[in-house]
Amino acid sequence: MLREQLRPAITIIILLSALTGVIYPLVVTGIAQTAFHYQAQGSFIQKDGRIVGSELIGQNFDDPKYFWGRLSATTPAYNASASSGSNLGPSNTVLLVNVKARIADLKAADPGNTARVPVDLVTSSGSGLDPHLSLAGVKYQVARVARVRGLSSDVIEKAVQENTAGRFLGVLGEPVVNILRLNLALDSFKK
């Protein structure tokens, strides 16, 4: 029984490997590169001929003149070669230490702000690369960024709106702001 099945087993594993492990990915690559080249290459944002990031991959910001995004548990923060969440359990004291430190940083950058801090601004994302923040997290920072940059809140809020993505068809997901694109937009005002 075993001997009879040996030839089909070996032949089929080889042929199905070639089909699903080589031909299938190559066909997908061919279609993807032709139809959606920008996305298939990684959705990179170019500035002055060099890559300044991907619109899907967040970057770390802690300068008060920029909007800050989610906390990142990777080393260094937003390490796009080794994605990871914090994996801290809800009762872990380290989680509380991290959250408190973040609140202290936010308060230090903007002592006058007495609003409650939106939760996604003090917690780390699942990937450590989250490019987005909730609208609440952005609103919390508008006054600070406007003050440090010497711009009016209206200008900033307009930039925020331009980089906001709503729910898909008004239903799926959560409305979010792309922090990297927002900060790049702010930097372009200077010139």
């Binding site: 917690t123 780390s124 990937s127 987005h132 959560e174």
Partner: peptide
Amino acid sequence: NMEGKEARFG
């Protein structure tokens, strides 16, 4: 509870 979750998914 947003620890370990992505903003776009909530």
